[in-house]
Amino acid sequence: MEAVITEIEHLKKSFGNNNVLKDINLKIAKGENLVVFGKSGSGKSVLIKCLVGLIEPDEGKVIVLGKDISELKNEELNILRKKVGFLFQSAALYDSMTVRENLEFPLRDLKSKPKEEIDALVIEALKNVGLEDAIDKMPSELSGGMRKRVGLARTLILKPEIILYDEPTTGLDPITSKEISNLILEVQKKYNTASIIITHDVECARITANRIIILKDGTSAAEGTFDELSESTDESVRAFFK
């Protein structure tokens, strides 16, 4: 197993009286794809938002690339965030910008780089997702699958060490879903990134997962490979694979 690059210890998060995450512990190694299954409202998105500091945990430690998120100042957190990609469920492309501008946005700090170099990075990221022709399109001109792919290209442009996918295949047809899942796998192999993939899509999990955890009642109810969990004796675990 490669080095652990993300570690969560005794993570707790509540919203009012609703204890969403009660005690989450997990480790992710470099180059590993971890799929997180769980019912809607089980805290899957809250979990990955805690990893990038979008949500502050009530208790517990979140260590990303050797740094405890809770101890970082805003500037330090922003530096760390550049090493962690986040693909949102809706892709979250900036509506008022073209695809090119969307991809250039995370590179704003690299003002010293010549324009040709920035252009090359944008084109490379779009080539990775097979969308170099869409460079001057507006997000409104793209299909759901294309938006997800542009979102992934925007995530990849900073060559992150960890990528967090929030339901990458939700709302897509089975063929596009499979394309996105294969793309996630390709990214893992090409850049040796660690990924946490939040999904309800069994096919996506089958293609991408090295390991799966199932969230239930705010804790990790089961953990294992796709084959192990799909043949589990626990009915509530097997239910996710039907």
Partner: peptide, 21 residues
């Protein structure tokens, strides 16, 4: 309307996780 729509479609979160304030 613009900022609200950016908020509900997670564009503001996306900006934050890309290291921009």
């Amino acid at each position: 309307a613009e900022l609200a729509s950016m908020k509900v479609t997670e564009q503001i979160d996306a900006m934050e996780v890309s290291g921009t304030n």
